[in-house]
Amino acid sequence: NQASVVANTLIPINTALTLVMMRSEVVTPVGIPAEDIPRLVSMTVNRAVPLGTTLMPDMVKGYA
């Protein structure tokens, strides 16, 4: 099973992502692959992402 990116904290809308905000976890449904974490750093989220939420491609500006 592939690990996905999961919010390690509440990420407010329009926040630039940092490494400490994200962790990898095997979850269903599958979200952004964990190997993309380095690429996500400094990208911003377009909605509030609660703790434990899987990051989906449409949640990160410029990812999809």
Results as ranks from 00 to 15, higher is better:
Asn1Lys: 05
Gln2Phe: 14
Gln2Asp: 15
Ala3Cys: 08
Ala3Gly: 07
Ala3Ile: 08
Ser4Trp: 03
Ser4Thr: 04
Val5Thr: 09
Val5Pro: 01
Val5Phe: 02
Val5His: 01
Val5Leu: 03
Val6Lys: 03
Val6Thr: 05
Ala7Thr: 10
Ala7Gln: 01
Ala7His: 01
Asn8Thr: 10
Thr9Lys: 13
Leu10Pro: 15
Leu10Ile: 14
Leu10Val: 12
Leu10Asn: 08
Leu10Glu: 09
Leu10Ser: 12
Leu10Phe: 13
Ile11His: 01
Ile11Lys: 00
Ile11Glu: 01
Pro12Gly: 08
Pro12Arg: 10
Ile13Thr: 08
Ile13Cys: 10
Asn14Met: 14
Asn14Ser: 10
Asn14Asp: 14
Thr15Phe: 11
Thr15Met: 10
Thr15Asp: 03
Thr15Ser: 06
Leu17Gly: 01
Leu17His: 00
Thr18Asn: 05
Leu19Asp: 04
Leu19Ser: 06
Leu19Pro: 09
Val20Arg: 14
Val20Gln: 15
Val20Gly: 14
Met21Arg: 04
Met21Glu: 03
Met21Cys: 04
Met22Trp: 02
Met22Val: 05
Arg23Ser: 05
Arg23Pro: 01
Arg23Tyr: 04
Ser24Leu: 08
Ser24Arg: 07
Ser24Gly: 08
Glu25His: 09
Val26Thr: 10
Val26His: 08
Val27Trp: 03
Val27Leu: 05
Thr28Lys: 04
Pro29Cys: 06
Pro29Ile: 06
Pro29Val: 06
Val30Gln: 14
Val30Ile: 13
Gly31Ile: 01
Gly31Ser: 02
Gly31Arg: 02
Gly31Pro: 01
Ile32Thr: 01
Ile32Ala: 02
Ile32Glu: 01
Ile32Met: 03
Pro33Val: 08
Pro33Met: 09
Ala34His: 07
Ala34Cys: 07
Glu35Arg: 05
Glu35Thr: 12
Asp36Val: 07
Ile37Ala: 08
Pro38Ala: 13
Arg39Lys: 09
Arg39Ser: 10
Arg39Tyr: 13
Leu40Ala: 00
Leu40Val: 07
Val41Leu: 14
Val41Pro: 01
Val41Gly: 01
Val41Lys: 06
Ser42Arg: 11
Met43Trp: 07
Met43Pro: 00
Met43Val: 03
Asn46Glu: 14
Asn46Ala: 09
Asn46Gly: 06
Asn46Met: 15
Arg47Asn: 05
Arg47Ile: 07
Arg47Tyr: 09
Ala48Ser: 14
Ala48Gln: 10
Val49Cys: 06
Pro50Val: 07
Leu51Phe: 11
Leu51Cys: 14
Leu51Thr: 12
Leu51Arg: 11
Gly52Asp: 14
Gly52Asn: 15
Gly52Gln: 03
Gly52Ser: 11
Thr53Cys: 11
Thr54Cys: 04
Thr54His: 03
Thr54Ser: 04
Thr54Met: 04
Leu55Tyr: 00
Leu55Gly: 01
Leu55Thr: 02
Leu55Ile: 15
Met56Val: 14
Met56Trp: 06
Pro57Ile: 05
Pro57Gln: 07
Pro57Ala: 13
Pro57Lys: 08
Asp58Gln: 09
Met59Ser: 05
Met59Ile: 05
Met59Ala: 08
Met59Val: 13
Val60Ala: 01
Val60Trp: 02
Val60Lys: 00
Val60Ile: 11
Lys61Phe: 10
Gly62Pro: 07
Gly62Lys: 07
Tyr63Asn: 03
Tyr63Phe: 10
Ala64Arg: 10
Ala64Gln: 14
